[in-house]
Every structure is written in structure tokens, then in C-alpha cells.
Design a protein around this nucleic acid. Structure first.
Lengths: 344, 344
DNA sequence: GCACTCTTCCAAAACGTTTCGGGAAACCCG
DNA sequence: CGGGTTTCCCGAAACGTTTTGGAAGAGTGC
């Protein structure tokens, strides 16, 4: 029952034409007669001919794949992001007839090396770079090689033009701070990651800027950080934040995962939310609406970001990075029950 | 700054060797001297040489990719599955040095056609088939072509040997039914999908078999079904189930998504869970532990399934489908607060 | 009838890799 | 020293595609 897929050679033999003519007929060139073109196309669809990807890639240099490297360890990334983001990418890529080549970096592998391997194997026409760190080495590497890419997030040092799309975490945390200030809060806290993730940097910066506008500042002991993917350290950090002498009345958390842990720790200490403490997160995880109280947070519309990143990447592949404007997209404020007026 | 990746040709010229020798040295053949082999390898790593994927694929017929087609429309699939499953696949594939080629089927495309395209383009060494329907045409197609594949799920009609891995939904719902019977329940209900998903079929069958053992049966009006991805129809179906004259005291739901909607509808009707009604779901979505009351459900350990499916597929690619045993894996019962003794 | 131009087709080369089938030294043994 | 075996290397072909540079034939204008 196993039958080999017909190639250009078989198709041309069957039609009594040369390989060249068949190829050009399918590509729609005008130097093959309309009659022949139709005859070829009919035969191609009838036999289910699809151009071999490797052959085409070898000749044209275009593989039809766009690459994404994901780490295997980052459970938080998977939960919050991966499914939605990948779906968004896939949606936009499908419209352009391209596919997503998803490479997993195992525990032992440095993500940068995996990226280099993917690029050097010529297996993709461009890369999506996600989970950016402040000084992410991947960006410089890709710029150096002239590999088309779009950064989902931002880096701090790179001055050469490159395409990126990021959620405006600074604006979001600024907005949150102003809302809480209007509700009478004066003592703020921040629960964040100790890893140099760029998003954490900007969210903190947005909070601090808004506080500065109001003549306030984050007390050093009102800032707690934990490494990603370490629940114990996270609980400890949350606990520390709840036990400082002058406990903040409002704590902003860099992600919902952090916020939910913080709320759990608060519950264990009989700290009532939002009466004693207002909590705001970021990500709008599905669980956040079911937490009790419902978590006030921001929605970054990850799937839409995926669509936009893919479209930008297609543009970079077509016309180069200079022609593509970076995008800063606003996150939606999702007010729920975890924040309220400052305690008297 | 843009520099072209060195190919075998450049590498061999630089070393004063033939392309053949460089290729064979890197492949570790014994007909190149140990000295030369080392020299070649050193030069290769120094220059960051990685074999071109297209060239290799063209010659060897192996692309290094494993394919997965996902539909763009199925939000429920994304939430519950995609991230974890893809992560599991990626983890196992990375160990084998392979990548995942993720193709998205747009709204207009039939998934079967997309699958055929991927296969006929020769862009993958094997396929993962997910979201199986009872009479899924993809299975026969792939068997006919002799394409290596693993089915995540099961089909009903196909007698030819093929590799599949499925969660034992029948056993799980049987277990749930027996536990509820032991708690005194006698009137059961089922909320499921109207689409011919195989998992829904088996879960229902498991429930009915367990009831039959106890001399009971599902009343026709105690079965409600809604199409996937239609929240309104789902709420309507849940409502119908809650308003039958002799309301069931225990309702099993084919997925957590269904169960959570059911619980919301029950709350609107002031039906207390678990006092008046026990609810059991399936999937153990993150939200399920935050629902109130916490949803009793089953955990299929999707990420582990992804790992296992990928390992099976690698085996099928290596040695053919006959050598690979299908796997039926048990789901873990996750008791929470949404089920309890039958009302008096 | 000649010099053109169009139209329609094709042979061959190239992309980068792997592998088949040698082939030239060097070594071994009597 | 001559025959045979090892060791180490290489040229060339092939995978399937796209594209370059024609070439053959038909039509056109004079």
C-alpha cells in the first residue's frame, strides 16, 4: 500500500514535458503556455504533488520554517505563555504558508548554543526570541549574523536597529501604582524575580517612576525577589515581604504566579486581602480569576502578541530589520477583588 | 558583520582535504586516520560548522523533524494541552537531536489536507497525531502511506497495527462511578461533547459499564452534550442537565472545562456542591484546584504523555510500527471538594 | 524570402550533503 | 623483491528543486 510521493521527475515523465517546464508551470511563469500550465496543474493536484521541502530549501535558501527555542525547565513559562504564544505564531505563519520549528533546549544545554546550532544548520528563515534577559546575548549574535529575528521582549544595551515587540510593563505598573495611590496607599512593596528578565526590570521601573512622581519611593526591605522555578524560595521571599516591620499596604507582583503565592502566604498569616493588603499581579493566568479573592492583574493578550511577532518576522525576512518598527503594546488592566482602599 | 556560515566545501579547502574526507571524519568513519579526524573535528567546532539540514535531508531522506498539526480554533485544546504536550514532545525529541515542526491548520483548512501537505512535502520523518476522533481519517491515510506516526488517543475502526498512546478514560470514569456508588449515589448524569472525540466515547463507556455492573443505567435525559468551543451551547447543555425532573445526584463531565461550566450553572440555580450534587471532571486544569469548591478530577499527566509519545515515534521511525506496543496509561484520581455522599 | 520578434519549451548547473567504488601509498611476509 | 593486505584518502554521483541561458518554431513586416 505504501506508495512513494511523486516528484517533479515522475510528473514530468508522465506529462511528456521537461522538469523545467513543469516546475515553471507550477510556479506560474508566463513562459509556459496557458494550456500546458493548466494541464500541469491539473496533474499535480490529481497526484497530490507537493514540492519537496529539502530540495526547495537547498536551491532557494528559504526553508519555510521559522524557529523558536524553548527551554525545557521553565514551568512558569509553559503555563503562562507557551500554548497561547505558539498558537498566535502558528496562526500568522499559517497564513503565510510557513511552519514553526520548535527546538527544545534540554536542561544541560545553554539556550544560546542551541540557537547557534539552529541558525548554523540553516534550518530556519528567521527566529523568534522569547524570554529576553536584560543583556541577552542572543540578540547581538543574531544581529551579527544578519539572521532575521524578532525579539519578544526587549534588551537594554543593544543600539543597532532590530525588531522587537514588548508588552508595556512599565506603563502597566505605573497605572497600577497611580490607581493604588488614588486609593490612599502610601507604603508599596514589590515581589519580583531575581533573574535578570527584562520584563521584571521594566515593571519595577514603571512602579518606581510612578511613586517618584508622588514623592514616594520603594523601601529597600519592601522589595523581595526569588529565582524563577524555585517555589520554596518564592514562598520565603513572599513571607519576608509580609513580615517587614512597616508592612506595605500594596504589593505589586511581577507575575500572577508570584501574586498567587503571595496571597497564599498572606492567608497563612491571617492577613486579609484586600482589607489589610492590596495585591496586583501580571499575566492574567486562567487561575487568577478563580483565586480568592480574584486577583487584580494585567492581561498582555499573549496570543495577539504571537500573531504580531510572527507578522513582524515575516516582514523582517522580506525586507530586513530596518524597515520594521518595534512595537510596544499596552496591557489591559483587569480589576478584580484583590485590591482596594488602603487600610485606615 | 554578516558572515556566511562555512560549509563542507570551505572547511575542506581550509584543511586541504576533500569534501568526502571531511564528511567522513565528522561522521566518525574508521577509514580516516585518527590524526585527521581530530584535526577536522577541531576545525569544525572552531568554525562553528553545523551540517546544513536541507542538504542532509535531501541526500539521506531524514529531515530531523517530527510533525504536529494543530488547529487554530480549538481554544480548549490550547488551554488544557498544547503547552504541556508540546513541552513533553520537545523534551524527548531534544534528547534524540530532533525538532518539532509545528504546522497550524487555519480556520479554513481541513486538518486532513494540512497533514497530507506536510507529509507529501517530505518535511518530517514522522507525525504525531493528536485530538483523535472515533473514525479519524488521518490514521488510515498515514498507514496507507507507510508514514511513521504515533496517535495520541485512539480510533475505533482501524485493525492494522499502529502505534498509539492513550489515557485510560474508561478506567478513570469507571473508578469515579464506583467511588460515587460507594457514596450512595444512584442517579448519574453525564456532560460531554457532541463531537465524535474518541476520549469522550471511552469516558462515557467506562461510566456506563460501571453503572451496568451495579445494575444501573444512564437515563437518556441525564446525558447532555455540547459542541466544543461553543460556550453558549455548553451552558445550555449544563442547564438542561440540572433541570431534569429527577435530577442526577452525581454528574461526570468529560473535561474540566465542562465541569467548571456545570458548577457555575449549578451556583446560579442555588444547587449546592457537593451537598446536592457531586461533580467530577477530567484533565486537572490549573483552574480546577482554584474553583470553589475544588473540582474532583483526573490528571492525565500530559507532559509525560508527550515524552512517551515522542519516544514511541522515535522507535517507529527506527524500527517500524509493528515493533511498538500501544500504551494505555492510567489517569490519577485527584479527589477534591466537588464530590461527596449522595443527598439523603 | 529575409531579418526580426514572440512564444514556448528545455538541458544543465547549482544548492550541501552522503556514499559508492575505487586508488595510491605503505606495510607485511615469505 | 614481488605479491597481497591495510590504511587513508578522494572523485563523482545522487537526492529534488529553481534558474540561467539558450533554441526551435511560429508569426510579422518589408
Amino acid at each position: 500500500m505504501e506508495r512513494r510521493q511523486p516528484r517533479l521527475k515522475e510528473l514530468s515523465r508522465e506529462l511528456g514535458l521537461s522538469i523545467t517546464t513543469v516546475s515553471r508551470a507550477l510556479a506560474g511563469y508566463s513562459d509556459v503556455s496557458a494550456t500546458t500550465r493548466e494541464r500541469v496543474r491539473e496533474a499535480a493536484t490529481r497526484s497530490g504533488y507537493v514540492p519537496n521541502r529539502a530540495g526547495r530549501a537547498l536551491k532557494s535558501g528559504q526553508t519555510g520554517f521559522v524557529g523558536l527555542v524553548v527551554p525545557v525547565r521553565d514551568a512558569q513559562f509553559i503555563d503562562a505563555f507557551l500554548g497561547e504564544f505558539v498558537m498566535g505564531l502558528g496562526e500568522a505563519l499559517a497564513e503565510a504558508g510557513r511552519d514553526l520549528a520548535l527546538t527544545t533546549a534540554t536542561r544541560r544545554q545553554v539556550e544560546m548554543d542551541v540557537l547557534a546550532h539552529v541558525v548554523n544548520a540553516g534550518q530556519v528563515d528567521g527566529m523568534v526570541v522569547s524570554r529576553a534577559t536584560c543583556e541577552d546575548p542572543r540578540v547581538g549574535y543574531l544581529i551579527d549574523r544578519g539572521v532575521p529575528f524578532v525579539l519578544h521582549g526587549r534588551v537594554l544595551g543593544e543600539t543597532r536597529p532590530h525588531a522587537w515587540l514588548d508588552t508595556d510593563g512599565a506603563a502597566a505598573f505605573g497605572e497600577a501604582a497611580r490607581r493604588l495611590l488614588a486609593l490612599g496607599h502610601r507604603r508599596f512593596g514589590l515581589l519580583t524575580y531575581s533573574d535578570p528578565m527584562t520584563f521584571a526590570h521594566y515593571r519595577r521601573a514603571g512602579l518606581e517612576a510612578a511613586l517618584a512622581e508622588a514623592g514616594l519611593a520603594l523601601a529597600p526591605e519592601a522589595i523581595a525577589a526569588a529565582p524563577r522555578g524555585d517555589p520554596d524560595a518564592l514562598r520565603a521571599a513572599a513571607g519576608r515581604l509580609l513580615e517587614v516591620p512597616e508592612r506595605p499596604t500594596a504589593i505589586l507582583c511581577a507575575t500572577d504566579t508570584l501574586a498567587i503565592t503571595l496571597m497564599e502566604e498572606a492567608a497563612r498569616r491571617a492577613i486579609a486581602i484586600p482589607r489589610d493588603l492590596s495585591v496586583v499581579g501580571f499575566d492574567n493566568l486562567p487561575v487568577s480569576s478563580y483565586a480568592s479573592p480574584g486577583l487584580t492583574t494585567f492581561d498582555a493578550r499573549i496570543q495577539e502578541c504571537g500573531v504580531a511577532v510572527a507578522r513582524m518576522l515575516l516582514a523582517v525576512i522580506e525586507t530586513g530589520p530596518a524597515a520594521v518598527e518595534p512595537k510596544l503594546v499596552a496591557a489591559d488592566f483587569i480589576p478584580r477583588a484583590s485590591h482596594g482602599p488602603a487600610p485606615a
